[in-house]
Simulated assay, not measured.
Amino acid sequence: MTGQQHTHVAFFNWGDLTADHPEKMARQPFNKDNPDGPLELCTCSECGAALMLDDKERRIRVAVPNVMGYDDAAFPDATYHAFWDESKGYPKPSDGRPVYDGLQPSFTWPAGV
């Protein structure tokens, strides 16, 4: 989705990641194949910068540090590989961390706010 072979993504409980000026965020569907899905890409309505992914059901918010201008070093090390898609032709990650085609099986969506 980012055009990169891999990227670091951080999930937050919905209320733990906020925007200083939510009224300045433009929202568009995150997944073109599921435009009515729960996730929206939030961008700055003034400059177009990607800010975060927001969940319309108020369960999670997501940051992609290297795409959204955050300090990648301030985020903890990834614990697993998610959404690995063998159809892209990339080799399966072999750094010892578990690899999943979606979120790790123990992931549970938090209740909405």
Rank of each mutant, 00 (worst) to 15 (best):
M1F: 03
G3V: 00
G3Y: 04
Q5E: 13
H8V: 12
A10F: 05
F12A: 13
F12L: 13
F12P: 13
N13L: 14
W14T: 02
W14I: 04
G15K: 14
G15H: 12
L17T: 00
T18L: 11
T18H: 12
A19S: 14
P22C: 07
K24H: 11
K24F: 09
M25G: 09
M25C: 14
F30I: 00
F30Q: 08
D33Q: 14
N34H: 09
D36E: 13
D36L: 11
D36P: 02
G37Y: 02
G37A: 11
E40I: 00
L41F: 00
C42Q: 10
C42R: 05
C42D: 02
C44D: 08
S45W: 01
S45Q: 09
S45T: 06
G48F: 07
G48V: 04
A50T: 01
A50M: 03
M52H: 01
M52N: 00
L53G: 01
L53Q: 04
D55P: 00
D55Y: 00
K56S: 07
R59K: 08
R59M: 06
I60F: 12
V64K: 03
V67K: 00
Y70I: 02
Y70K: 02
Y70M: 04
D71A: 14
D71P: 13
A73R: 14
F75W: 01
F75D: 01
P76G: 13
P76S: 11
D77W: 12
D77S: 15
A78K: 05
H81P: 09
A82P: 08
W84D: 09
W84G: 01
P91H: 04
P93V: 03
G96V: 08
P98I: 12
Q104V: 14
F107I: 08
T108N: 15
T108Y: 07
W109M: 15
A111D: 15
G112E: 05
V113A: 15
